[in-house]
Design a protein around this nucleic acid. Structure first.
Length: 544
RNA sequence: GCCCCGGUAGCUCAGAUGGAUAGAGCAUCUGCCUUCUAAGCAGAAUGUCACAGGUUCGAGUCCUGUCCGGGGUACCA
């Protein structure tokens, strides 16, 4: 399809030249209405103004030029008001694509824009203060799918998790565990005002008690360190259950220890972008066009999160990735620009960094919004969600809609309606195909690469193929948008066309040749479904 | 006040770079399983695409303003 489009683009450009029309950036897209062919172009409409001629006239002139050119796979060219040029593609083009899809197999659709390039996708990045919640789930699934999309475009991808292990949150975590430990020991305890109240804190304290006895003193580093270790290992398990793994972990402590933070603050100081006021250290963002200066080091002596984050992003830039993707919740919307600003002030090129913000997930339970807070232990964990709904459903729910919109996750509904979940619609198509292939085998009709693709002439067959051939372009566009729901939408449409075909056309029949051709067709659909689902991280079952 | 995201069918949401009659699922109604999986298919019904201007041959899509909802605007991350 891509080469065909390229051919048409070139053809139109040549026509423009020979007619001495000016060049224009025109579109070449499939129209909704089949009466307008398989691809149509708006070129004439775009030229009308410049040429002061009616678009229909221009369209006819271009179409005339094209008629005399040699264009492969084009059956006919028409012009329709207000001035579209429509191309009708021969069935043979679509029919023959089946064999190329089958030949490419599980690499059908792979793009090459990222060939030889590296990408870093940072996601989840939850601090190890408690179990992952639903909000982290959206982040995790988005990030993993986006990493997959980049891999499908030939990038070498590093999946990275960054966490703060030196800040206030971790300090409070340690204090919370300590208090619970003292309680268990029957010693006097003092639970911090903003401590983490979850039951998991008690369990960690109990483990520490078992492992290290009752004699730990106040302020022992074990409270924080053991808790961090334990919680982190739980986080990794939760992610694993959703099929998510990481290649690299970074933490803020590193940047304190290796001097990176002192280093960059020094650099900014030299540029007069750091100053002291009210006992705090400030970043002079206003000098760089921002509205407010930002605190870098609090009066307490602790740096704000911006500081290690900036060092961390500098580190990522210095690792020379061609593309750096950050997946952040909407609450970061106001903070990452400061990080970028500081990096630019240091003379770094931040253009490889692409920040993706997703809106919050609102959980609905019993028709009520569930307010969540890790600290108050009032949350639904990702594990609970996964256990109730299964990994496939959880993943699909998080990517089926745009990250720009709030996600209302109705827990009761999701559980009740799990039969009717759209993810099953896709998986069912895949399972159906597997069953057809199996059935064919039993009837002695094997799936083979030699079949007469010209047998595939039914309207529902062609309609299915017409959608199939767009898959490679989809992978490419999704590389630009980085919106996994584009893939989910595409697959829904593919499954719909398959199910319709299934209702209209019987695959295994007495007609051997037709059966073989249709087996070829459905196996190609299976390939695309499988490839698409794997990008979304969802299984493609053989049976349901 | 300022910044970000959203406002599309009764509900939840899709609408690839502006394109030719605005889509799906759920919910409602009508058909279809002695035939490869009915977790499916076919059909019916449902809309001032928040509102008002503007740009354009053409706007759900781009620009401006207004209204509504969510989030941010910390010496919390």
């Amino acid at each position: 399809m891509k080469t065909l489009k390229k051919q048409l683009t070139d053809g139109i450009q040549r026509a423009l030249e020979s007619l001495s029309y000016p060049g224009k950036d025109f579109s070449l897209a499939p129209p909704n209405n089949p009466d307008f062919g398989n691809i149509s172009s708006n070129i004439a409409l775009l030229l009308a103004n410049d040429l002061k001629t009616s678009p229909l006239e221009i369209a006819n002139a271009i179409a005339n030029e094209l008629q005399s050119a040699v264009l492969d796979h084009i059956e006919s060219i028409t012009v329709t008001p207000p001035g579209f040029i429509n191309f009708f593609i021969r069935n043979s083009f679509f029919q023959s694509s089946i064999k190329s899809i089958r030949k490419a197999g599980n690499s059908y659709g792979r793009g090459i824009v990222g060939r030889g390039k590296t990408a870093n996708v940072e996601f989840v990045s939850a601090n190890p203060t408690g179990p992952l919640t639903v909000g982290h789930g959206r982040n995790a699934v988005l990030g993993d799918s986006i990493a997959n999309i980049l891999e499908w475009n030939s990038y070498e991808v590093t999946r990275e998790y960054y966490y703060n292990d030196a800040g206030r949150q971790m300090h409070i975590l340690g204090q919370s565990v300590e208090a619970r430990y003292f309680e268990l020991c029957g010693r006097k305890s003092n639970f911090p005002e903003e401590g983490y109240q979850g039951e998991y804190i008690r369990e960690i304290a109990r483990q520490i008690l078992d492992r290290r006895g009752t004699e730990l003193g106040s302020g022992s580093h074990y409270f924080k360190d053991d808790a961090e270790k334990e919680i982190f290992s739980e986080i990794k398990n939760s992610l694993k259950r959703l099929g998510i793994h990481f290649d690299h972990f970074s933490n803020e402590k590193t940047f304190y220890e290796n001097g990176a933070i002192d280093q960059f603050i020094m650099e900014l100081k030299k540029k007069d972008l750091i100053y002291e006021k009210d006992g705090a250290t400030w970043f002079r963002a206003t000098a760089l066009g921002k509205e407010k200066d930002r605190v870098y080091i609090k009066t307490s002596g602790e740096p704000t999160y911006r500081v290690p984050d900036t060092a961390y992003h500098r580190d990522k830039l210095e690792r020379k990735f061609d593309l750096i993707v950050d997946i952040f919740g909407a609450d970061h919307a106001d903070s990452y620009p400061d990080v970028l600003l500081a990096l630019q002030a240091m003379g770094l090129d931040t253009s490889p960094i692409k920040v993706l913000l997703y809106q919050f997930v609102t959980l609905m339970r019993d028709g009520q919004k569930v307010k969540m807070s890790t600290r108050k232990a009032n949350f639904v964990t990702l594990d609970e969600l996964k256990n109730d709904l299964g990994a496939d459903v959880v993943r699909y729910f998080f990517i089926m809609r745009s990250m720009n919109t709030h996600l209302d996750f109705d827990l009761d509904l999701a559980a009740d309606q799990s039969d009717k979940n759209p993810v099953f619609y896709l998986q069912y198509a895949h399972a159906r195909i597997c069953n057809i292939i199996k059935h064919g085998k039993e009837k002695g009709i094997k799936e083979t690469s030699s079949f007469q693709d010209g047998q595939l002439t039914h309207e529902d067959e062609l309609n299915l193929i017409r959608h199939m051939v767009h898959f490679p372009e989809l992978i490419e566009t999704t590389h630009d948008t980085l919106e996994p729901q584009n893939i989910a939408n595409y697959l829904q449409e593919l499954a719909a066309r398959f199910h319709r075909f299934y209702g209209q056309c019987r695959v295994i029949t007495e007609n051997k040749e037709l059966s073989k051709a249709r087996l070829g067709l459905v196996s190609a659909v299976k390939i695309i479904l499988g490839n698409g689902l794997s990008i979304l991280g969802i299984t493609a079952p053989e049976r349901m």
